[in-house]
Design a protein around this nucleic acid. Sequence first.
DNA 1: GATGAATGAGGTTTCATTCAT
DNA 2: TATGAATGAAACCTCATTCAT
Lengths: 221, 221, 221, 221
Amino acid sequence: MSTAVGAGGSSGDGLRAVDGRIPGRRGQQTRARLLDVTRDLLETTGYRELRVVDIARMADMSSATFYQYFHDVHSAILVLADDFAVTSGARLEAVIVDADWTRRADEAANQLADAFLDIWARNQPLLRVIDLASGEGDERFAACRRRLLNPVGEALAAAVRAQVAAAEVARRSPNAVAGVLTAMLAHVSAHQRGLEEWGASVDALRATMAGIVRTAIAGEL
Amino acid sequence: MSTAVGAGGSSGDGLRAVDGRIPGRRGQQTRARLLDVTRDLLETTGYRELRVVDIARMADMSSATFYQYFHDVHSAILVLADDFAVTSGARLEAVIVDADWTRRADEAANQLADAFLDIWARNQPLLRVIDLASGEGDERFAACRRRLLNPVGEALAAAVRAQVAAAEVARRSPNAVAGVLTAMLAHVSAHQRGLEEWGASVDALRATMAGIVRTAIAGEL
Amino acid sequence: MSTAVGAGGSSGDGLRAVDGRIPGRRGQQTRARLLDVTRDLLETTGYRELRVVDIARMADMSSATFYQYFHDVHSAILVLADDFAVTSGARLEAVIVDADWTRRADEAANQLADAFLDIWARNQPLLRVIDLASGEGDERFAACRRRLLNPVGEALAAAVRAQVAAAEVARRSPNAVAGVLTAMLAHVSAHQRGLEEWGASVDALRATMAGIVRTAIAGEL
Amino acid sequence: MSTAVGAGGSSGDGLRAVDGRIPGRRGQQTRARLLDVTRDLLETTGYRELRVVDIARMADMSSATFYQYFHDVHSAILVLADDFAVTSGARLEAVIVDADWTRRADEAANQLADAFLDIWARNQPLLRVIDLASGEGDERFAACRRRLLNPVGEALAAAVRAQVAAAEVARRSPNAVAGVLTAMLAHVSAHQRGLEEWGASVDALRATMAGIVRTAIAGEL
DNA sequence: GATGAATGAGGTTTCATTCAT
DNA sequence: TATGAATGAAACCTCATTCAT
């Protein structure tokens, strides 16, 4: 899963300009700059206020230039989102797969929680868009979301299945367990700031999440 | 006039028209109709495509009429969101507070999970907007989000604190536990459809969530 | 000149409501209140920003009420303007006619200048509208302007003609002299504030104007 | 690009487009065309009816184009007004400064009156707006008005001061004299048409104004 | 490759205005 | 008399988008 980068997704032609040509070195730079600015503005201005005009202006370019590389704002965001999803999906998957859930479940769970917190902290704006858009039925973003979370889910489900002593409930539905855990990790990470303000330190959150993960997977439920 | 209260939510001036006057019966109806349509379109069209024109058109009114009751689309959504938040926040709180977490923790946890699943299923579009907008720093929606989840969080934290045998971690930070549980319940509920497609039945999800909640609160972690 | 009040002008139907009926005591009060607010807003907000909505709101009434007494904002302003024009025109005329331009020209000129300064200071906003609207060809306001200045002009012209020793130029065209004097008096009065800021005290302005008027009329040019 | 300067007025950023860039030759032309049309419509339609839509339509452009060069109608008018103010202010100042008020006061006064009549005749609409807007406290137009009349006022004041034999009054307040003269010249010029209809020929007006100016300055008051 | 310039298109917003109550 | 309520109409203004250069 998620092995196929560069081939599958809608971002396969990411490097191409809108007219089909493959940009040269200078073009690549322009494209990259546009993406950077898009990411920045997404963080600064927010998704609801993101305009091509502003991206171009902040990149010191003409709007026209933007359209040489992307069909519209969404396409640009999607490139960012896809890139992020693939990379982060893989990273999370690795954390799970590489861990020893039998003997060092504690450490594994903590590392997983930590990875989530870290990734979500760094990519909040993107994640918000992915959530909204996929929720509203935008298939491109839904795919992106899957690309990010499926590896995690599958890996977690596998881990659950692997534990002989897993509790009844878990044994009956590894996918449910994996899904719930993923959701928990994702949402807590998405709102770490808010939760902190409410009186839950990041450390406590991490510990709590890790505890739940470990219990659920290691069957100590 | 102004006898017709009872429709309003928490926002004190919710029922006022934009010019400050309190609408009479007919006005209240119009306003309610607009809110209804807004909710419908939010579900149908999605937040990103929600236009005043469309709301008005679908309500068989002039755009101008919309502006007699709301400053803009966001204000209308906010009214819906606030109303929903208050009502649902209270309902969830009641579920937690009224339950017997000592002797019938199992039943309590199940009811809680169920309430979440139900509420989220019915209000997906609103919840998506609340999440996005509050995430992007829109204080009005952030407040709304708090109004929805704080009662839950507080009640859960109280429940955790009440359990003598609670595990170390939990005892050290009831807020973290409550926060994590809330996040889990919310996010799973938000994505029940997606999770189903991925192979996790709603029943299994409910059971899993309930299991985690019960364990965490009842201290059997 | 200006003998015909109440009969001629467009304000002849001023006391009537739009539907033709003559309002009772209560209606008169409402109408008067609307006019008052209109005058206030004209001073506060300025002509360019004057809206029926605002007049009504500031008078604590519905816009609909406004339309029971006036066809539109201009009509209301016109009522104010006409009233002002007739009253002030008469006052200025009296100052000129009652004066003794032969033996006490000095005193007469000073009184005239003073009357202008006073009237203009009190009615700046109205005067600005009269000037703009009449300048742009709005006949109703042009008539109003005449109602204000013609009496002055005629009286001044008569005064000029009456002076035996009048200079050549003046003798050739009393109307030109009267017109120029009127214009001077009006415009200086309209800009007394600005002129003060520029370093010309009101006293000096009055004296200067008086000097010019006296010289022109008394033939000491 | 930006070689084409020379069209601009006094406002340093006058030739910039709204987005901050300096338009090229083609853009300058478009901008100039819009200004031309604005001036025309100001004369034709009047200030109160001046709409962006109409300007654009009459210039055979899209409204959107208008907004590439001006923020709103006022900005466009202001450009015209500023340009006019600077040019005409200078012209009038020159007339005063270059004249010989000692030996050829008569000729000088006549030339000044004539310049006023001419300038005002050609720019009535603009002058009306400047007067109204500055009167209503619009600082941008007030500044514009100063730019037009201050040079005149200062020059006249200097001329007054320069005359040894100046009358008492004048000697006491050159600024008052200058201000009154300026006001007279301006207002008569603004209403030459109306005065003509009232029986004062332009020639007579000119002569009368000149007489007053000469007397006031040359001290023959 | 990049962009100056122009615009189609459409939502937003405001007002004046009307009518039934 | 007064006004709550609704709306037609139109201007405003912004954007995405497109070419010719």
